[in-house]
Computed example of a mutant assay.
Amino acid sequence: MPFRSPRHRHRHRHRAGGPLDAIVGNRRGQLVLVLAIVLVAVLAAATIALVTRPERADRSSAGGTTPAPDSAPATDTGAAGRTGAPAAAALLDWADRELPPRTQLRAEGDVRDDLLAAGAPDDLVATDRPTGPDDLVLTVTDRSAEPGGRVIARFDGLALRDPAPGTPTVDQLDRRRSLAGAILANPTTRAPEQAAEVLRSADVDMRLLSLLAVLTARQGLGVAAFPRAEGAEGPARSVLLDAVGNAPVGAGEAATAELRTWLEAQLPPFAPDRVEVTDDGVLLSYHYASDPDALVAEASP
């Protein structure tokens, strides 16, 4: 069964065709609470853990004001050096927002036990589940594991990794650099140095980069930041916009509604998975994809 939290359901809506495919094509670019209480002596502690466990609310609402995914909560480690259920709960909460439905997490031993204790369904962390061509298979390891693959996020002693991430081709990297360069060269683009440096590196998910290029060409853009999860490697999948054209966007700003309407008209893979309106601007986020350059290439004319 695909990873789909009971409180996290994707909303499917009909999207009117937007201009993104055509413009990008011309530039050749595009995550049953299981808690085993075996001794009466630990019942009180287990009850506290259950009551205080963060509720994994649905965060896919376009009008939500959840924090930007730029950090993972710090958690305590056990006396033996293991990261306990708190870190696993933080990982599962993050995965519920940031990973696509068809995701499997592979973990073994103590790490798997911690995920189960934190509420992961058995089938989500099963090590013998068959996988399909569209499934995303990630690994969860503790600090003692050998490094490998791409780190997607860190949660104290736990690391969420993609063991076999896609590698962009030379042509795909050139397309990224071309789009990023065009965004920076546009006189209407406004970005602080940190955000501009991310664009100069072209280390941005091609789905997001394509969307920003079109927005820049249409009206101009204020790019405030590219938030990232703690310890994350790979291209940025989120951006905080503070203006479109000369109009500020964010909570209470008139131009926000128009921006959201335009975003809702976009088609996959360019449509953001989350659009969050905050006091600082509008946060656009995409679910993790192992090879976003290939997704865009498949959607290009």
Rank of each mutant, 00 (worst) to 15 (best):
T52S: 06
P268T: 00
A49M: 12
L91F: 10
V34H: 14
A289N: 04
P187F: 02
G148Q: 08
D114T: 05
T103Y: 01
R237N: 01
L136C: 04
A254C: 08
G231A: 12
P235S: 10
T83S: 14
R56G: 01
S5D: 07
R260L: 10
D128T: 15
A45H: 14
F155C: 08
T127S: 11
G245M: 06
V275S: 00
L33P: 05
A164V: 13
A36G: 14
I23C: 01
D291L: 14
L158P: 09
P268C: 06
T261I: 07
G81A: 09
T278K: 12
A159W: 04
P235A: 10
R27L: 15
P235R: 01
T47L: 15
G281N: 07
A68K: 11
A195T: 10
Q104D: 04
V277R: 04
S300I: 11
D76T: 07
L241S: 04
D110Y: 09
A232E: 15
P292K: 07
A145S: 11
A299N: 01
E233K: 14
L92S: 01
G119D: 05
A236R: 13
A196Y: 03
L209A: 03
D123S: 10
R161M: 04
P86W: 01
A213R: 02
G149Y: 05
H10Y: 08
L199G: 00
S5G: 06
V282G: 01
R4P: 00
L267D: 00
D171S: 08
D174M: 05
P235K: 02
R190Y: 12
V204F: 08
D279N: 12
P2R: 08
R274N: 07
L115Y: 03
F3W: 15
A224I: 12
R13I: 02
A251N: 13
R102K: 13
D291H: 15
D291G: 07
E258L: 13
P165E: 08
A180D: 05
Y288T: 03
L116G: 11
V223S: 02
G252L: 10
V38D: 15
V111G: 00
V38W: 06
P19L: 06
G234V: 04
S71L: 08
